[in-house]
Computed example of a mutant assay.
Amino acid sequence: MKITSNFDSGNIEVIAATDPQNIQLAIRKDHQSDFYQWFHFRLNTPHAQVHKLHIVNAGGSAYPDGWKDYQAVASYDRQTWFRVESEFDGKTFTITHYPEAESVYFAYFAPYSYERHQDLLHQAQNDYNCQLVELGETLDGRDMNMLVVGEPDDSKKKVWIIARQHPGETMAEWFVEGFLDRLLDEDDGVARALLAKAVFYIVPNMNPDGSVRGHLRTNAAGVNLNREWQNPSMAQSPEVFLVREKMLALGVDMLLDVHGDENLPYNFVAGAEGVPSYSGKMQQLEEAFKAAMVMVTPEFQTEFGYGKDEPGKANLTVASNWVAEQFSCLAYTLEMPFKDNANLPDEAFGWSDIRSMKLGQDSLTAILAVVDDLR
C-alpha cells in the first residue's frame, strides 16, 4: 500500500499506512503560513477491502466548520470526481472507501491542474477574438497571464474576471473555463451581444504558485493575495501587483472575483457596501446583478452569505472592495461551495467542477442584464 502526493497540487503527509482500516494522514501547511485545508493525494493498494483514511489534524485547519456535512471527492481516471463517505468528529476527518481499482485519487475538490490551466489559455488564444497577454512572473518564476476577449474600444465597458486568488478554491477556475466556453462561442447570442458592448479582461488563475504547491490560501511566500490590494509588492505579492497595475492602466467598469467558501453550502455574492464611496448607483447595479442571477439559475441565491460591512468600514485590502473604491464600479466577490448546494443537492457529486462551469456560463446572462448601466 502506498500513498503519495508528489504531483501538481498534491498535499498530504503520511503518518502510518500499513493497516487499510487505520491509515493516518495529515495535511501539510501552506509554505510560510499556518493555513491548511486543501488535500490531494493518491492511494495505491492491493487490498480488496474497505479503507479508512484518517486526516488527524483536520480539527486545527483554517476552517474546521468546513468539514461538517462535507464529503471528500475521489476519482479513478482524474476526469470524473465523485463524493465518498466522510465524517468529522471535531478533530479527525475520516474518509471511508472501498477502492474498485488499484489506484484512486482523493481531493478536497476536483483539482484544476497547471497543465489544464495552460491548455485553457492557449486554446482560448486560438479564437480570433481572444488575445493572450503576459503580465510578468510569480515568485516561483511562473507566468502571470491574462486573456483579453473582444476588440478594445473606448466606448466599450471593461469587465474584469479574476479567479483563484486562493489556490485551493479550484471551483473558481472551473467557473472561468465555463465562462470562456460560452463567451468564445460565436453562435451564442448572449456572448455576441456582450462583446458588442464590452471587453473582458480575464485572469483564470491569480495564484499559479500556490496552486502547484498544493496550498489552500497563499502564494509561494505564504501571503494571502486577497489581503494585498492596497499595497502589493513584487517581493511578496507580484500576482496582485501586476494585475492591479494593468487595472490602473486600462480601467475597470465591473469586477467578478471568483472564490470558493469552505463553510457555506450555497452560491452567493459579497458586495462592497462598506467602501467609503458606496453610492446609490453601485447599490442599484448590485441589486440588478443579483436579481438577474436568481432569474437565470436556481443554483444561485441571496438569502445566505456574508454579513454586510458597516458604511465606511470595508477592508480595502480585499480585491472587490479596493476595485469598487478605486473605480466607483460594480465589484463582487462570487463564492461557490466546497460542499454541495443545499438548495439543489446532488448526492453523488455535490457541488462539482461541471456545475461550477455551468454557473460560469450562466453568469454571462447576468452581466448582459447590467452591462448598459455600468457607466
Rank of each mutant, 00 (worst) to 15 (best):
K2G: 09
T4W: 01
N6K: 13
F7K: 09
S9I: 08
A16I: 10
D19P: 00
D19F: 03
Q21P: 07
R28K: 15
H31Q: 12
S33R: 02
S33C: 05
R42V: 15
L43W: 02
K52R: 15
K52H: 12
V56R: 14
P64E: 01
Q71C: 12
V73D: 02
V73N: 05
V73K: 09
D77W: 11
D77H: 12
T80P: 00
R83I: 11
F93S: 04
F93T: 06
E100P: 08
A107N: 05
A107I: 10
A107C: 11
A124H: 05
Y128S: 15
Y128D: 14
N129T: 14
C130H: 07
Q131P: 05
L135R: 11
G136T: 06
P152R: 12
K157D: 05
P167H: 08
M171V: 11
A172Y: 00
F175W: 15
G178Q: 09
D181F: 00
L184S: 06
E186M: 09
E186I: 12
A193V: 12
F200W: 04
I202Q: 05
R213M: 13
L216Y: 05
T218V: 09
V223M: 01
N224K: 07
E228Q: 07
N231P: 08
A235F: 08
P238Y: 01
V240N: 01
F241V: 08
L248I: 03
A249N: 13
D257A: 07
H259I: 03
H259Y: 07
D261G: 06
N263G: 10
V269Y: 00
G271Q: 06
Y278M: 08
S279C: 07
G280T: 14
M282H: 09
Q283K: 15
E286D: 09
K290G: 06
K290I: 08
M293F: 02
V294L: 15
V296Q: 14
T297I: 04
Q301I: 03
Y306H: 14
Y306D: 07
K308G: 05
P311H: 08
E325D: 13
Q326V: 00
Q326G: 00
A331M: 05
L334N: 01
F338W: 07
D340P: 03
D340K: 11
N343H: 11
N343P: 08
L344S: 13
I354L: 14
I354V: 13
Q361T: 04
D362R: 10
D362P: 01
S363D: 02
T365C: 03
T365M: 06
R375A: 10
